[in-house]
Design a protein around this nucleic acid. Sequence first.
DNA 1: TCGCGACGGGG
DNA 2: GTGTACGTCGCGA
Length: 874
Amino acid sequence: MELQILDVDYVLVDEKPIIRIFGKNPEGVTVCGFYEGFSPYFYSNSEKVGKVLETDSGVVSIQKTAMRFVDKDEQAYKIITKNPAKTPEIRTKVMSAGIGAYEADILFRYRFMNDFGLGGLCWIQTDTIPISTNTVKVEKTFKLSNLKRLDKIIDAPMKIVAFDIECVSETEIMPDPKKDPVILISFAFNTDHQGKKELVLSTRPANGLKAFDSEKEMLEGFINIINSYDPDIITGYNINNFDFPYILERMRKLGVRSSFGRCNTKPVMDKKVGLNYKITIPGRVSVDSFAIIKKDYSLVRYGLDFVGEKLLGEKKVDVKKSQIAKYWKGNQKDFDRLVYYSKIDSVLALNLVQKLNLLTKYFSLSKVAGTLLQDTLDGGEATRIENFLLREFNKDGYIFPNKPGDAETLSRQTKAKIELKGGFVLEPKKGLHSDVVVFDFKSMYPSIMITFNICPTTLIRKREGVDKNTVFESPSGAWFLKSEIKQGIVPKIVSELMSRRAAAKKKQKEATDEFLKTSLYGEQWALKILANAFYGYFGYARARMFDLDIANSITSFGREAIHQAQSMMEGRGFEVVYGDTDSLMVKVGVDDLEKIRGLASNVSKEITEKLPGVMELQFEKVFKRFLPLSKKRYVAWKFEPTNTGWDEKLEMKGVETVRRDWCLLVSETMKVVIEVILKENDIKKAVSYFKGVVGDLVKGKIDINKLVITKTITKKPENYDGVQPHVELVKKVSARGIDVGVGDRVGYVIIKGMDILSRRSEDPNYVVEKGLELDSNYYIENQLLPPMERIFTALGISKSELLGGGRQTGLFDIIKNGGGKKTLKEIGLDSMSGFVCKKCNQFYERPPLIGVCSCGGDFLFSSKEGYAEALVIN
DNA sequence: TCGCGACGGGG
DNA sequence: GTGTACGTCGCGA
């Protein structure tokens, strides 16, 4: 039989662990296979381990093995134990005897998968003997033997359900599962369930929903529906940190067993880890679409209403969170609205997963790294790297160290902060540049690891007796054995990942089947992500293989390479205007895109030839216009070469154009200004556009909707410590009879007045109604200017010049020596002349309209004839 | 500039 | 369950 692995765990039968594999067959039928006879084990470095564990009844056997340690050439002792859950006790015993324990914290299911060459979502072929059991809610159950990994790419069909709960609290704050009941549960199915795509449960009857007499019965109903639909994946929006913990707490309170996993003996569990909950559903996978979207999309806000509209174009009905209690207790129409609202939430959560293919990435990552889908979703990059590395190190006869404890992690963190040096960043050359060619090192850090054979197994820890000719010395001073002496495992893995990626990319190009194409795209993407993550892994304090010598060697080789490339560029007479870690921005003195393409490809080839190993410099793109703001921050008009021509786009690095605490006017103005500068190459126009906006603001000609700043009320107004505009507004409007509850979003504008800023927030509608005047100065100084100033400063335009009024220059009058009023021309000023601040010597071609320097100083008038007192009047 | 505490999402 | 798992922003020093 063939099956794709969805989840793996184990159960104890007669004190022996039996591995369970929950999976799908090619038709999408759920299967559960049992594997007996696999025992937990770990390693030790000392023969004393035999003595220490002599009388331990949990130990099956201790044998000397051929397995070696990464940092010392000694053979390891393998301790086979009976019970995975009791192995930590044995580990502690070993460690407190002062000897080492290795791989003593590998989860049993991962120990099994690694030893059998299996992983999350991989396909396997296995011999089966049907068995009957009432321990799992799976129709087809087998004993497994002869497990073999298959090279299948297409996934089995998966069943997905999204759910959403509603509950109300007595008070105005967030409901508390300790006392507040669940009132409504909605579902959305990806395949019909009993002829329906959606379903709503409630303890209040209504048309089109399933009503229950009590909350307890409704929760049992929830469990029944999940079990009868039998989804592989349960999703929802923020379910990991709200719906699941809430509903599980209610079940505990009401004495309902949370058995909606595929196992009858193991309930669904939630465990608080730090601030977040981790949900375990035996045999199924919990997918929180909110968590994925937060990770994979860069948005201003992540509320379901905003996300649904932005990413799906699907609007959510507007039900104020604080009004839910009213709808719940209200008339039938009110209640219907609540039911509809809840249903849409489930549908949206499901649509996000399906229409945005949120899972594709994580499926690929699971398959490449071997982590189970649930762990790929919940865990970080290090989890995946580590699982992948464990297998590869074991294959080559190496043993992995344990994870560091808290104390060790902390000391590593502080050490890394001080000692770990990153990539080299060139000081950008000021100004607006045209026709800049961007070169970069292809997979720089992976290439370095391969080229210089960088690996924990090749790092020389004792130099005595090592011939320097047999090693690569990194610029940071570490030694690594050359690959002809000993091939490192990490470089081998990384190079395999890279060639597998090349192969997947090639297959993807040739593939005609859409499913296959998508899968292959995901595969090559995951391979790239994994290969690129190795560097970070060695500098990550919680990593089993944390090693600053390795991390620093990688970055130091990187800095050396970028310097080499820079001087080779300069040696060709090109000007390097900027560079960061693995990229160089270069002016080659050519402005035709096609000519650049030819020239840049040649240059990168020539330079690559002179680079060591597999290091490769490639021509990446052209910046028709490039404006660096500072290190790591720039805006550019990018042209990317394609097979047929060029892809044109604006590129912004480290520059925010949207921020949640900015009003719409800021992002709009920024977009226009940046576009005028980059595409039209017209700085004057950009300045006058900006001045125009400022002028309109002063004159009150800007649409008030563009000036609204929105924030969420997170607690009751009286519970806030400081003074915040949106909270002050809530206090104001509630006095006018408008109530705003916790969780509601509040939009406000800042009006003119004497009070402190935070108390000058006002309801936009009220402002319009009463004809109040907005504080244009606030919008200029606190909203528009901070981001805009950064851009204009990069162009050599100062704040005072920017604020030089909305009028054209040349209209001002000047009174010389307090004498008669004269215009510029009458005084005989030519273009070489200007104004100098008496205090700070700042030079101005044209004085700002405020009449004094930005430092507050008065002006001297400078011309060929000399200096004169200048009084600037507007 | 750095370091620490407060949100975020959900009802 | 052989489990340790944020990330960003704003504020005050």
